[in-house]
Design a protein around this nucleic acid. Structure first.
Length: 484
DNA sequence: TTTTGAGTTGTTCGA
DNA sequence: GTCGAACAACTCAAA
């Protein structure tokens, strides 16, 4: 009797272009697919609330696909992977486990330990690459060191051989004959009870491979044509919206890459726009590679001078930021979009993050933590490297003096006020001119628009130009004490 | 080894 | 209103 093989689904919740799954099926053994909810492994960033909502629906979608596609139901188990997998081997007689590699430092350590422990029990444990275009550790400078600047990193990636073509969906696979126990998904309580803060999310997102494919096609058939411009306009839905799908591996970056390059071959006029989009995939790669080489990126400022930065401590300012009550409409609109939808447009992520770290001078880790809990696409590598990038402490970061003016950013990128009016309906009656700076509007206009400052909408919690000066001064302090 | 050019996304000030 | 320089130096990557 052939011993079955376990395929351990992780952040690769798809069947297509899943090399580990294909390899498992190719062994000819019965395949047992399992997902393990792991809230126990040490050192991990425990999945936040929004991510859990996504996971719930993504697992439902995967279950459906697997049911159609195979005689093996997706097993759901909870706990630390090592004992769970070991038990599953005992129950099923499996002598091999395949999975897709993960790159978070804690996950990489977990894989190493698993490898050693399972080896001792003569269980084969194989990891496959499927979540990145280029393997961390393989993209290095001529002197063999990791890249710390994006442009040369990406140039090197682009001059390397193209990432492999996506692999086809697997053929049908079968479970072993005996039934194995599975936990009901609803027992995991991944979705909110009351209050249901995720109400309406299902209308905005379709977690799972099908939803990912739909998004990709919609993007390539439209917005990509004006990507360079459109991606900066938060009122337009002109970005790919693929980030949560990519995080959970419902679509692979290779699938995205090859779909985009095929489009480029088809319509050369779009080359510039599509290359810009590909470079955004490049930033995802860059973040993962950085995290691989610098595992404390999520906890520690990459640039050492920032360890001397005089961060403020101010709970009420933090709360105002989190709740979208800073008095800067562009910032508040973004923070409310995040809270209400689990998503925030990229341009606005930069504005809100700059505001937290520079205007409020609160530590970038506070923002990182909040985004981790509230973003559907929360991703350790992207979140950490992007927060550090905005704060100025990261690799290839924006210069510290680049301090977004939240008023002019609003006027520039939400010209007709559509985004702000949508998320801040209490300001909708203001004319465009004052939409980004309600506190400067004449009383008569405020009255006509039904805006009562300090009641229906707050005054700015900090003054822009003095906050800007204070931020630059704080940077001087950090630099001087570092150099001293 | 030394040198050189470059580095995602901005803002402000003064001519 | 427009334009260029200043903002700060520093580190990285490659010749």
């Amino acid at each position: 009797m052939t011993k079955p093989i376990i395929f351990w689904f992780r952040q690769d919740l798809r069947l297509k272009d899943n090399p580990g799954l294909l390899a498992a099926i190719a062994t000819g053994k019965p395949v047992i697919p399992v997902y393990i909810l792991d809230d126990e492994s040490p050192g991990q960033w425990r999945m936040g609330g929004a991510s859990r909502w996504w996971l719930h629906h993504s697992l439902e979608a995967l279950t459906g696909i697997i049911n159609q596609h195979s005689g093996s139901p997706l097993l759901l188990r909870r706990g630390a992977p090592e004992p769970v997998l070991r038990r599953l081997c005992e129950e099923s007689g499996a002598d091999a486990i395949f999975c897709t590699r993960q790159y978070e430092p804690w996950a990489a350590k977990l894989e190493q330990n698993l490898h050693l422990q399972l080896q001792a029990e003569h269980i084969t444990f194989k990891r496959f690459s499927g979540s990145l275009l280029f393997e961390p550790g393989t993209v290095l400078t001529q002197s063999g060191s990791p890249f710390k600047v994006f442009t040369p990193f990406w140039r090197r990636c682009r001059s390397a051989p193209q990432p492999p073509r996506p692999q086809p969906a697997p053929r049908r696979f079968e479970a072993p004959h005996h039934a194995l126990e599975t936990e009901p998904l609803k027992d995991w309580q991944l979705t909110p009870g009351a209050p249901n803060w995720a109400e309406g999310w299902a209308a905005l997102w379709q977690p799972g491979p099908e939803g990912a494919a739909v998004r990709l096609q919609a993007f390539l058939n439209g917005p990509v044509g004006n990507y360079e411009e459109g991606r900066n306009q938060p009122a337009q839905h002109a970005t790919s919206l693929l980030s949560p799908h990519l995080h959970f591996g419902e679509i692979s970056p290779r699938m995205v890459w090859h779909a985009a390059t095929a489009k480029m071959a088809d319509q050369p006029a779009l080359s510039e726009q599509i290359n810009k989009f590909l470079s955004e995939l490049g930033w995802r790669e860059f973040s993962y590679h950085l995290l691989h080489h610098f595992p404390d990126l999520p906890e520690k400022s990459f640039k050492p001078q920032f360890s001397h930065f005089p961060w403020e401590r101010n709970d009420s300012a933090l709360r105002a930021w989190q709740r979208g009550q800073t008095g800067y409409p562009m910032v508040d609109a973004g923070m409310r979009e995040l809270w209400q939808t689990g998503y925030m447009h990229n341009r606005v992520r930069m504005i809100t993050a700059s505001f937290l770290t520079k205007h409020l001078r609160l530590h970038w880790r506070l923002g990182e933590q909040w985004f981790w809990d509230t973003l559907l696409d929360a991703d350790l590598a992207n979140n950490a490297s992007s927060w550090q990038w905005v704060a100025g402490s990261g690799a290839d970061a924006s210069p510290y003096f680049r301090i977004f003016n939240p008023t002019t950013q609003g006027q520039k990128f939400d010209r007709n006020g559509e985004y702000i009016r949508h998320w801040l309906p209490e300001l909708a009656g203001l004319p465009d001119k004052y939409l980004c700076c309600p506190s400067e509007a004449p009383d008569s206009l405020l009255e006509r628009a039904g805006v009562i400052l300090d009641h229906s909408y707050p005054r700015p919690i900090v003054d822009h130009s003095s906050a800007r000066r204070a931020a630059l001064a704080a940077y001087d302090v950090a630099r001087d004490s570092f150099n001293a």
